[in-house]
Design a protein around this nucleic acid. Structure first.
Length: 107
DNA sequence: CTATTGACGGGGT
DNA sequence: CACCCCGCCAATA
């Protein structure tokens, strides 16, 4: 991945405040790379730099946790709740309530 | 060059 | 909800 892309995505993820969440697609757009949602996921999953980021605040569209059933998904749910974020009975986060940035989650 | 592969997103049935 | 299909795009084979 280009260093530029990594820089921008890392900055965008670090900008998500505690108690708020964002999505792969939104992070990509905010970082200046629309349509690169998959690459945001790849970065958070494989880049060493991602370990120091609040990666757990990044969800799939609709506030869905990616790769359900995996250990990582379980860990993400724990971290989100630890962050004070409510998940519905299906483990879904209400992005209209917790989404970041707010401008991207207004009806 | 084509084909495959994703922590993705959206639409249709 | 379950599937199925397509668009997306960089990396890799």
């Amino acid at each position: 991945m280009s260093p530029d892309f990594e820089r921008a995505v890392i900055a965008a993820v670090r900008a998500i405040p505690a108690g708020r969440v964002s999505t792969y697609g939104t992070v990509a757009a905010v970082a200046g790379y629309p349509r690169h949602a998959r690459h945001v996921g790849a970065l958070l999953a494989h880049a060493d730099a991602a370990l120091a980021l609040p990666w757990f605040r990044v969800l799939g569209s609709g506030g869905r946790i990616a790769r359900p059933g995996t250990a990582g998904a379980d860990q993400q749910r724990i971290l989100l709740e630890h962050d004070g974020i409510e998940l519905d009975s299906k483990g879904r986060v209400d992005v209209w309530r917790y989404g970041w940035p707010p401008s991207c989650f207004m009806r």
